[in-house]
């Protein structure tokens, strides 16, 4: 469908990441008292940046 490959994998990664963004704090980490949830979400934010950077990495002006 496109000249650039990898769209399905990238979209799947975004979907999984967003799912984990809710599922981990409300699943394994639910009710834990400490900084683990804050640290998880901090890492989640950085992972979002990396994923978006990968998605935009191939853009070019021609």
């Amino acid at each position: 469908m496109t000249g650039r490959s990898g769209f399905a994998a990238w979209l799947g990664a975004l979907a999984v990441l967003v799912f984990l963004g809710a599922a981990v704090p409300y699943g394994p980490l639910a009710g834990s008292i400490g900084w683990s949830i804050a640290l998880f979400w901090g890492g989640f934010g950085l992972a979002v940046i990396v994923l978006i950077a990968l998605g935009a990495a191939g853009w070019r002006d021609r």
């Binding site: 979209l11 809710a22 804050a38 989640f44 979002v48 994923l51 978006i52 998605g55």
Partner: peptide, 23 residues
């Protein structure tokens, strides 16, 4: 508490839609 951070970061993850729709 910290749920506010998660909520706002899900919005933040929505910026990923820009990779698909911005171009």
């Amino acid at each position: 508490g910290i749920g506010a951070l998660g909520f706002e970061l899900i919005y933040f993850a929505g910026l990923g839609l820009l990779v698909i729709f911005a171009p």
